[in-house]
Protein backbone atom coordinates (compact mmCIF):
# COMPACT_ATOMS: atom_id res chain seq x y z
CA UNK A 1 0.00 0.00 0.00
CA UNK A 2 1.23 3.50 -0.77
CA UNK A 3 2.08 5.59 2.25
CA UNK A 4 2.65 9.25 3.02
CA UNK A 5 1.75 12.15 0.80
CA UNK A 6 1.25 10.10 -2.33
CA UNK A 7 -1.23 7.87 -0.49
CA UNK A 8 -3.16 10.91 0.70
CA UNK A 9 -3.16 12.31 -2.79
CA UNK A 10 -4.43 9.06 -4.28
CA UNK A 11 -7.18 8.95 -1.66
CA UNK A 12 -8.17 12.57 -2.42
CA UNK A 13 -8.34 11.83 -6.14
CA UNK A 14 -10.52 8.79 -5.64
CA UNK A 15 -12.72 10.87 -3.33
CA UNK A 16 -13.18 13.33 -6.20
CA UNK A 17 -11.04 16.22 -4.97
CA UNK A 18 -10.85 18.51 -8.01
CA UNK A 19 -8.35 20.90 -6.47
CA UNK A 20 -5.96 18.03 -5.76
CA UNK A 21 -6.19 16.91 -9.39
CA UNK A 22 -5.70 20.47 -10.65
CA UNK A 23 -2.55 20.78 -8.53
CA UNK A 24 -1.22 17.52 -9.91
CA UNK A 25 -1.86 18.73 -13.45
CA UNK A 26 -0.17 22.06 -12.72
CA UNK A 27 2.85 20.32 -11.30
CA UNK A 28 3.38 17.80 -14.07
CA UNK A 29 1.41 18.40 -17.24
CA UNK A 30 3.91 20.62 -18.99
CA UNK A 31 6.89 18.49 -18.03
CA UNK A 32 5.12 15.37 -19.31
CA UNK A 33 4.19 17.12 -22.52
CA UNK A 34 7.68 18.37 -23.26
CA UNK A 35 9.05 14.91 -22.64
CA UNK A 36 6.42 13.30 -24.85
CA UNK A 37 7.15 15.72 -27.68
CA UNK A 38 10.68 14.39 -27.87
CA UNK A 39 9.28 10.91 -28.52
CA UNK A 40 6.36 12.06 -30.68
CA UNK A 41 7.30 15.18 -32.60
CA UNK A 42 4.31 15.19 -34.97
CA UNK A 43 2.09 18.14 -34.04
CA UNK A 44 -0.69 17.30 -31.63
CA UNK A 45 0.27 13.68 -31.00
CA UNK A 46 2.14 14.27 -27.75
CA UNK A 47 -0.78 16.37 -26.49
CA UNK A 48 -3.14 13.48 -27.15
CA UNK A 49 -0.90 10.96 -25.43
CA UNK A 50 -0.49 13.13 -22.34
CA UNK A 51 -4.28 13.57 -22.10
CA UNK A 52 -4.73 9.81 -22.40
CA UNK A 53 -2.04 9.36 -19.79
CA UNK A 54 -3.96 11.46 -17.27
CA UNK A 55 -7.07 9.37 -17.81
CA UNK A 56 -5.06 6.15 -17.62
CA UNK A 57 -3.55 7.37 -14.36
CA UNK A 58 -7.00 7.96 -12.86
CA UNK A 59 -8.43 4.69 -14.11
CA UNK A 60 -5.35 2.87 -12.87
CA UNK A 61 -5.07 4.45 -9.43
CA UNK A 62 -5.94 1.24 -7.62
CA UNK A 63 -2.89 -0.34 -9.26
CA UNK A 64 -0.52 2.23 -7.84
CA UNK A 65 1.39 0.30 -5.22
CA UNK A 66 3.63 3.03 -3.92
CA UNK A 67 6.80 1.18 -4.86
CA UNK A 68 7.87 4.36 -6.60
CA UNK A 69 6.82 7.96 -6.17
CA UNK A 70 3.47 8.75 -7.80
CA UNK A 71 5.28 11.14 -10.14
CA UNK A 72 7.61 8.39 -11.33
CA UNK A 73 4.65 6.08 -11.85
CA UNK A 74 2.93 8.75 -13.99
CA UNK A 75 6.07 9.26 -16.07
CA UNK A 76 6.37 5.54 -16.59
CA UNK A 77 2.81 5.33 -17.83
CA UNK A 78 3.45 8.23 -20.18
CA UNK A 79 6.65 6.79 -21.59
CA UNK A 80 5.08 3.38 -22.16
CA UNK A 81 2.07 4.89 -23.90
CA UNK A 82 4.26 7.19 -25.97
CA UNK A 83 6.35 4.22 -26.98
CA UNK A 84 3.42 2.19 -28.20
CA UNK A 85 2.01 5.23 -29.97
CA UNK A 86 5.34 5.82 -31.70
CA UNK A 87 5.35 2.18 -32.76
CA UNK A 88 1.89 2.59 -34.31
CA UNK A 89 3.01 5.73 -36.08
CA UNK A 90 5.89 3.74 -37.49
CA UNK A 91 8.43 6.03 -35.95
CA UNK A 92 11.85 4.80 -35.01
CA UNK A 93 12.03 5.07 -31.29
CA UNK A 94 14.63 7.04 -29.48
CA UNK A 95 14.97 4.19 -27.01
CA UNK A 96 14.71 1.22 -29.29
CA UNK A 97 18.40 1.15 -30.12
CA UNK A 98 21.14 1.75 -27.64
CA UNK A 99 23.80 3.26 -29.83
CA UNK A 100 22.31 5.84 -32.15
CA UNK A 101 25.09 8.29 -32.71
CA UNK A 102 24.09 10.60 -29.90
CA UNK A 103 26.87 9.58 -27.63
CA UNK A 104 30.12 10.49 -29.31
CA UNK A 105 32.84 11.95 -27.14
CA UNK A 106 32.08 15.27 -25.56
CA UNK A 107 33.64 18.27 -27.36
CA UNK A 108 36.91 16.44 -28.10
CA UNK A 109 38.32 19.61 -29.66
CA UNK A 110 38.58 21.17 -26.23
CA UNK A 111 41.25 18.63 -25.32
CA UNK A 112 44.66 17.90 -26.83
CA UNK A 113 45.88 14.47 -27.89
CA UNK A 114 47.03 13.65 -24.36
CA UNK A 115 43.60 14.50 -22.92
CA UNK A 116 44.59 17.84 -21.37
CA UNK A 117 42.43 20.94 -21.72
CA UNK A 118 43.27 22.84 -24.85
CA UNK A 119 40.40 25.25 -24.45
CA UNK A 120 39.75 25.32 -20.70
CA UNK A 121 36.39 26.39 -19.30
CA UNK A 122 36.13 30.13 -18.84
CA UNK A 123 35.67 31.49 -15.34
CA UNK A 124 32.11 32.26 -14.29
CA UNK A 125 31.47 35.14 -12.00
CA UNK A 126 27.85 34.36 -11.31
CA UNK A 127 26.12 32.16 -8.79
CA UNK A 128 23.21 29.84 -9.59
CA UNK A 129 20.85 32.13 -7.71
CA UNK A 130 22.16 35.11 -9.67
CA UNK A 131 21.54 33.23 -12.92
CA UNK A 132 18.06 32.30 -11.83
CA UNK A 133 17.18 35.93 -11.24
CA UNK A 134 17.49 36.47 -14.97
CA UNK A 135 14.30 35.54 -16.80
CA UNK A 136 16.01 35.45 -20.19
CA UNK A 137 18.30 32.80 -18.78
CA UNK A 138 15.32 30.54 -17.96
CA UNK A 139 14.14 30.85 -21.51
CA UNK A 140 17.60 30.18 -22.90
CA UNK A 141 17.98 27.06 -20.78
CA UNK A 142 14.56 25.68 -21.70
CA UNK A 143 15.26 26.33 -25.36
CA UNK A 144 18.62 24.63 -25.05
CA UNK A 145 16.93 21.53 -23.63
CA UNK A 146 14.72 21.41 -26.73
CA UNK A 147 17.77 21.35 -28.99
CA UNK A 148 19.70 18.55 -27.31
CA UNK A 149 19.12 15.01 -28.61
CA UNK A 150 15.87 13.40 -27.37
CA UNK A 151 17.30 10.76 -25.07
CA UNK A 152 19.63 13.22 -23.40
CA UNK A 153 16.84 15.75 -22.97
CA UNK A 154 14.52 13.13 -21.47
CA UNK A 155 17.08 11.98 -18.92
CA UNK A 156 17.97 15.57 -18.03
CA UNK A 157 14.34 16.54 -17.55
CA UNK A 158 13.64 13.62 -15.26
CA UNK A 159 16.85 13.87 -13.25
CA UNK A 160 17.36 17.59 -12.85
CA UNK A 161 14.02 19.25 -13.52
CA UNK A 162 11.85 16.57 -11.89
CA UNK A 163 14.38 15.48 -9.29
CA UNK A 164 14.14 11.73 -9.94
CA UNK A 165 16.97 9.43 -8.92
CA UNK A 166 19.09 7.60 -11.46
CA UNK A 167 17.31 4.38 -10.49
CA UNK A 168 13.90 5.92 -11.13
CA UNK A 169 15.00 7.21 -14.51
CA UNK A 170 16.41 3.82 -15.48
CA UNK A 171 13.15 2.27 -14.44
CA UNK A 172 11.01 4.70 -16.45
CA UNK A 173 13.11 4.55 -19.60
CA UNK A 174 14.33 0.96 -19.26
CA UNK A 175 17.93 1.86 -19.95
CA UNK A 176 21.18 0.69 -18.39
CA UNK A 177 23.03 2.52 -15.70
CA UNK A 178 25.88 3.37 -18.05
CA UNK A 179 23.48 4.77 -20.58
CA UNK A 180 21.68 6.87 -18.03
CA UNK A 181 24.94 8.26 -16.77
CA UNK A 182 26.34 9.12 -20.19
CA UNK A 183 23.09 10.70 -21.38
CA UNK A 184 22.79 12.84 -18.26
CA UNK A 185 26.32 14.11 -18.42
CA UNK A 186 26.14 14.89 -22.14
CA UNK A 187 22.99 16.85 -21.51
CA UNK A 188 24.37 18.80 -18.58
CA UNK A 189 27.51 19.49 -20.54
CA UNK A 190 25.44 21.11 -23.28
CA UNK A 191 23.41 23.23 -20.88
CA UNK A 192 26.68 24.23 -19.24
CA UNK A 193 27.83 25.40 -22.66
CA UNK A 194 24.75 27.60 -22.99
CA UNK A 195 25.38 29.15 -19.58
CA UNK A 196 29.01 29.65 -20.51
CA UNK A 197 27.95 31.48 -23.64
CA UNK A 198 25.84 33.80 -21.56
CA UNK A 199 28.34 34.42 -18.82
CA UNK A 200 31.22 34.96 -21.21
CA UNK A 201 29.18 36.66 -23.92
CA UNK A 202 28.55 39.69 -21.72
CA UNK A 203 24.76 39.68 -21.97
CA UNK A 204 24.12 41.71 -18.86
Amino acid sequence: MPTGRDAELVASLIAGDEAAFARLVEAHHEGLLRLARRMLPRAGVAEEVVQETWMAVLRGLARFEGRSALKTWIYRILVNRARSRARKEGRSLPFSAMGNGEDGPMEPERFDASGKWQEPPSEWDASPSGMLMRKEMHQAILEAIETIPPRQAMVLRMRDLEGMSSEEVRNVLEISETNQRVLLHRARHKVRGVLEGYLAGGVS
Binding site: V25, E26, A27, H29, E30, G31, R34, P120, P121, E123, W124, S127, P128, S129, M131, L132, M137, H138, I141, L142, L156, D160, L161, G163, H185, R188, H189, V191, R192, L195, E196
Partner: peptide, 22 residues
Protein backbone atom coordinates in the same frame (compact mmCIF):
# COMPACT_ATOMS: atom_id res chain seq x y z
CA UNK B 1 37.93 22.19 -10.92
CA UNK B 2 36.21 25.03 -12.78
CA UNK B 3 34.48 22.51 -15.02
CA UNK B 4 33.22 20.39 -12.12
CA UNK B 5 31.99 23.51 -10.30
CA UNK B 6 30.18 24.61 -13.42
CA UNK B 7 28.51 21.24 -13.85
CA UNK B 8 27.38 21.51 -10.22
CA UNK B 9 26.04 25.02 -10.86
CA UNK B 10 24.32 23.87 -14.02
CA UNK B 11 22.57 21.15 -12.08
CA UNK B 12 21.54 23.62 -9.40
CA UNK B 13 20.14 26.06 -11.95
CA UNK B 14 18.19 23.26 -13.66
CA UNK B 15 16.82 22.01 -10.35
CA UNK B 16 15.60 25.44 -9.42
CA UNK B 17 13.96 26.39 -12.69
CA UNK B 18 10.34 27.24 -11.99
CA UNK B 19 7.85 24.60 -13.19
CA UNK B 20 6.75 25.20 -16.76
CA UNK B 21 3.17 26.44 -16.68
CA UNK B 22 0.24 24.53 -18.14
Amino acid sequence: RAYADQIAMTRQVLEQLPAEAV
